[in-house]
Structures are given as C-alpha cells and as structure tokens.
Design a protein around this nucleic acid. Structure first.
Lengths: 234, 234
DNA sequence: CGCCGCATTGAAATTAGTCAATACTCGTGG
DNA sequence: CCACGAGTATTGACTAATTTCAATGCGGCG
C-alpha cells in the first residue's frame, strides 16, 4: 500500500527503466482511447533529428512507438550526457515540469506520437487511474536515475558497460540477444566514458567470453551470471 | 499549465534540490494538520545512526526537522554513493516505492518526524492538493537527479565541488556563508570522488580566491560568479 | 596537555582520456 | 559483382586526471 498512489507496472513485461509502455495512455473506457488517439499526432523522425530542446516550454508530451531516441543534456563547452535512451513504449515529458529537461533526438529513424499537454492534463484530471500510472512511471524513472548515479559515481568502465548491457537486455523481448541502435559515442555519453574506453570494454568482455559481438550493434550474452557479477561488482 | 499536476514550489525560498520544506505536509484545513501531527512520531538521531535500510519495506515516510541526513547506496565491495543530503524540511520516502531506495543515516545529531505510510496515503487521498505538492517534489527530485547525472558523468573534480557548493548555498538562508555538516568523505561519495581529491579541490578554490574556509566546515563564497563559471564549465 | 578523528599534503600508481592510425561495414556507382 | 568511400569501430601509444598509499597537520574534547 504505497504512499501517494499505487505503483503499477504497466503493459510489457521485463521493462524496468524509463518504463511504461504502449497502452500506458489507454484508460479503461473505449471512448477515452479514442480521445487520446484524436489528440495525438504521429511524427516521423530521421536519424539525429531533434524532437525537442532542453529549456523550451514543454507544450507537448511524446510517446516513442518505433526506433530509439536519446535524451541529452549539454555543458556549454559541448560535453554531452545522455540521460536515457527511449525505446518504443517509453514516454517523454509526462511530468509537471514547465520546460523540457533534456534535448531529445532520434538515435535512428523513429516514429513518435505527440500529445498536446493540455489534452494530457484533461485526461489525467478525468481518469485518476491514468494519473497513478504516470506517477508510477515517475517513481520508476527516479529509481532508475538513482541507479545510474551509483553507476556514474562509483563503477569503473567495465562495470558500467556490463550494467548497461544487462539493462538493455531487460528491455528486450529476446533472452540473450541485444540490439544496440545507438553508436559507441552515444553509449559513452550515457556511461560517462569515451567512445574508445567503451570499445575497449566491449573487447574485454568479448575476450573473457562473457559476450559475443555478431556485429558491432548486436550483442549476444554468453554468460549472464558473469556479466551480472561484473555489473554488480560482486 | 503542466501535465499531471502543478509543480508548486513550497514553503522556504531558495530551496531547490530535494525540496519541499516544513509545511509541505500541512493542508489547508486545521483539523488535518492536527491529524498529521497526531500520526507523526518525533525521532532523535545520533550521528551515523541509521534511519532506514535500502531494500527494507517502506512502512514509514520521514521529514527531517533538525540536523542533516544522507541517503546512500552501497556496492557489495563497500563502495558508497551518497544520493543526496537531506536538510531540515526535506522529505524521505514520500513516493510510491514498495521499499526504501536508499539507506538513510544521520550526518550529525538530527531530529526526524516519522509518519506511517498508510496515514500519508489516507491524507493524500483526502487532499488532492497535498498529493500535487508531493508530485511536484517528485519532479523536482527527478530533475535534481538528472543534474547530478550530468555532474557525475561529465564534470571534473573542480567543477563538481563548485557545483556542490553552489547547490548547498542555495539551500541556505545566508547569502555567501555555507555550513557543511558532512565530512569530506561524505562529500566525496556524493560527488563520485575521493576524500583527497575533494580536499585538493577545496585548496584550489581557496588558492584562486573564489572561496575562503573559516573552518573546514564553514565556507565563505568570495566570488560567486567565478564559482558559477567553474561549476557551469562556462 | 595529549589524544583521536578528520583534513591536508605529497609521491607513486592506475585508470581513463587523447590523439592518431588502421580496420571494418554498408551503401553506391562503375 | 566488385571497388570505393564515408562513417563507425577498434587498436595502439602516450598523456592527464584521479586514486591510492603514506605522512603530516590541525582542532576539539577528555
């Protein structure tokens, strides 16, 4: 019996990170689904195209339905941090901030649904259950952020990559195959490393037989427990 | 007109981080204040005493009223990360997680009020406004977590310390004086550094006249803009 | 006054970053 | 069908930043 609201894990199984997936914006009544569909606009994104800019007034919320996006923050001198990768089903800007907290760009060609914020507000007003879902997502996101802070603050390169691969694997349907739509640079900026260090860590994991690379973007987990041990620093 | 709910900045001014301060749990009706006070238990903490353990079922929420606490996460081999420091007015575990996400300990002698979770749930049910306040806090926390991720992933030692000092300064009443109740190790574990590196960075900031140390726990900001420039990597 | 814990400083070791060269992949055009 | 080229990825050699280990300094309290 959690405080504030129930933390309901929604839709797809095995999805932890910035969870809430296709269906999150569906309420019980069919007419509401229709309402939401009516207010949502489908947007096609090409690789590296920007969906929204950090700091801009948050007039819309988004849901990724195809492809992958990345939420970035930049320092004035160009250093970049990728806060999170957004995969199909993930939501963007479904919170009560006045402006976008990150610049969101397409990792590869992608499709996104855009909802005007006031429409979302109205729907949430009318459907407490939907509000609770979104609240659950917020909590999950906060939790994920804390896990990432531990990773960035205290794990070494190998441990970071291992953690990342396991996290990606959990957002997959397939058991031990991971498709990585993002570049090594994207991964580096997500893990607080450089491209080269990420690459070397991949090589290291490969060398000790923990993973296999079918292609640079296709990972096969060979020994999951070993990977887990590295990730947890156990 | 933000999605989900209004993000209301509560009580005390100049408080950004894990905000929401004394009064957050006060609703408009006087009888509710009474209710809350009745369900809250005052707890005195001695330095390093543990308030709650990461992973334990979250039966209570807390509010810090005196002293300072730290929320930590540990790796199996003992590496520690301090997710956040909690100062008077800050809330702990006011979210919808089943279990505590961090171990919370007293930095120095402190006083905390403990609220049974079901009581908080009931109050939130009855007072949507209170719920929205807590939601606002959740968003602020998430935002703070993202800022911290950028710091941990992409800033160097000096920039991290500068950012930390500015953040602490904003949670203060006083303009340019900062009281640091935590040790250098605590700061280090918060910034993803070692005690020694933190100490060296203090010395560096002192050397270039940006800050002054009245004591090891009392900082005076001499040139705020310079500190800001370092923190922002501008 | 002296001890204990924390903070600072120093020197050596280590990890990750930088810069640069080479290799791989995939799509295009001969 | 193969060669070429652009964009990534990998690898190597070197450098820089931070950590580690160790010694010294400082301050408050018994």
């Amino acid at each position: 019996m959690p405080a504030i609201a129930t933390h309901s894990r929604l839709a797809t199984p095995r999805s932890t990170a910035p969870a809430i997936v296709a269906g999150a914006l569906r309420t019980s009544a069919a007419e509401d689904t229709a309402t939401f569909d009516r207010v949502g606009t489908v947007i096609s994104m090409r690789r590296d195209q920007v969906l929204c800019f950090e700091g801009d007034p948050a007039r819309y919320c988004f849901k990724v339905v195809r492809g992958a996006m990345r939420g970035c923050r930049l320092l004035p001198d160009g250093r970049r941090h990728v806060m999170q990768f957004l995969l199909p089903g993930d939501l963007v800007a479904f919170d009560s901030q006045e402006s976008y907290r990150a610049t969101v760009e397409a990792v590869n060609d992608a499709t996104v649904i855009r909802y005007p914020r006031h429409a979302v507000d109205q729907l949430v007003q009318r459907h407490p259950r939907l509000g609770r879902s979104l609240l659950g997502k917020l909590c999950a996101d906060l939790c994920a952020a804390h896990v990432q802070m531990l990773l960035l603050g205290r794990k070494n390169a190998l441990e970071r990559l291992a953690s990342f691969l396991l996290a990606m694997s959990e957002r997959n349907d397939e058991d031990d195959r991971i498709e990585l739509p993002m570049t090594r640079s994207d991964i580096a900026d997500h893990l607080g490393l450089t491209m080269e260090t990420v690459s070397r860590s991949f090589t290291q994991l490969k060398a000790c037989g923990v993973i296999e690379l079918k292609a640079s973007s296709e990972v096969l987990i060979r020994r999951r427990e070993a990977l887990q041990d590295i990730a947890d620093a156990a």
